[in-house]
Structures are given as structure tokens and as C-alpha cells.
Amino acid sequence: MIELAIHRPGLEAPRAMTPALASSFTCVLAFARRELREALTSRWFVLYGLAFAALSVSVSYVSLASAGSEGLAGFGRTAAGLLNLIMLVVPLMALTAGAGSLAGERERGTLIYLVAQPVSRWEVLLGKFLGLAAAFVACLCGGFGLSALVLASRGAVGIDSFVMLVAATSLLALVMLALGFVISVFSRKSSVATGVALFTWLFLVLLSDLGLMAGSVLFKLRVQELFALSVLNPLQAFKLGVVQGLESSLDVLGPVGVYASQTWGERLPWLLFGVLCAWGMLAFAVAAFGFSRSSTA
């Protein structure tokens, strides 16, 4: 029998691609478009986006007002405020959205119908991930854009720092989204997935910090051990990277920051970038492996 794949009018593959690759590309794109559309019309997603935009504008405005001066010094304070906001809100948004994606489809019974189509599971997963990632980046750009307008009205925008902040936040969102997908793959119900996502968020944001503090006292951890343990948490890696980008030094973070600056020097941003990328890729690989082995569609 002749292969059914792709040789049909209207969907001709680019010549450089093999038929299998073109077919995969078409499938991934179809899933990504559908996921993006669904996210942007989802009440929860829109609510998250509006909340993030409102909070980031508020933080920008209040930080500038309390700075009492205009210019780049004002932006530094604003960025510090935004950093705390980002570390709370963005992981929460991304983890819960990622956790709900596959688990929700499984619960509604739509996942079995999707995987019954001529698609590979990795195509389903990648398409959904890319669609949600695009929705997140758009949402973050909207929130940051409004903040930028507030900052620009006071002449307090450091363009390079602002772009770095947006890029790092987008990377953090992708990492958290990938972690959310891992939760989703292994959850049968969306309520369970959301619960696990909330616990993961709590652990990353709060408990790991407290654990490090307790561990440093109990086990008398050395500074290099504290740094290594901090960097293992993607949120801490993000924070270190952004502070380094804004301040050019991690002295404000105490002995661990001083150690990191002195030991890693100019390689530190690459280390932190690498840690975030490794988290994202590892999480996505685990999700893809779990989904490919899953019988719970």
C-alpha cells in the first residue's frame, strides 16, 4: 500500500524537508496553533495575564515613586521589585498551566482522540508546549510592555537591562512550563495535577529557601556547598542571573554572591543560563519519555 503521508494538494512540503519531517512539522504546528488559540481564549489565562500586567505596572509605579529620583537608579529599584513579583507569579502561572494541559485533555476524553490520529506523542507534546510557550511570552511581553510605558514616562528605562529581564523571565516561564508538563503527564486528573503544581511552586519559592537556611545552620554548610545547592533551584539560578545582569555584581546577595562572583567571574551568567536550559530540557525530556510510555491516554 502507498504511504498515506503528505502527498496531497494544498499541503505540499518544502523541498528541503523529508516527507516524514514535513509531516511532523505540520502536526507540531497544528497543535501549537490550537494550544495558543485555546490559551488566549481561556478565562484563567487571561486572568493571570491581566493580574501580572496590573501587578507589574503597580510595582513599577510604586518603586519609581518611592525612589524619589528619576533615571537609571530608579529602574534598578523597579527591577528589584519586578524580580520579586516575577519569582512569585510567573512560576505559579506556568506550573499550573503546564500541569493542566495534558491532564485536562485526559480528563475531558479528548486526549485519546488526539493520540488516535496519525501523530506521534512527541509531536503532541511539543506542539502543545510551543503553543503554551508562545502564549506565555505574549502574556509576559504585554505585562512588561505596560511597565515599560510607566518607566518611560519617568525616563527610567535601561533598555539593555529591561530586555535582559524580559528574556530571562521568558526562559524561566519555559522551564516552569516544562516542569508543569512533567506533572501533567503523570497525573490522571487535572485537580491532582493542579495540586501537585501548587506544591511544587511552594517548594521552589519558599521551602527550598527555608531548607537551605536550615541546612546551612544544621550541617554547617560551606559557602561553595550553599552556592551549589542554590543553583540547583531554577528559581535561584534565575534570581542570581538577573541580579548579576542588573548590578554586575552579586555582592548584594551576601557571602554566597561574593563567592559566586569571585569564583565564576564572567562565566557566571553562562553557568546560570546553562542551569536554566538544563532544567528545561531535562524536564521536557522526562515529560516526553513519560508520555511515550504512558497507557493512560
Binding site: L4, A5, I6, R8, P9, G10, L11, S23, T26, C27, L29, A30, Q117, P118, V119
Partner: peptide
């Protein structure tokens, strides 16, 4: 799109 069919068809 998933079944690689033209939209006209």
C-alpha cells in the same frame, strides 16, 4: 492538517 488532507477536500 493532522491527517495531511487538503482543506478543499
Amino acid at each position: 492538517r493532522l491527517r495531511v488532507e487538503s482543506l478543499g477536500r
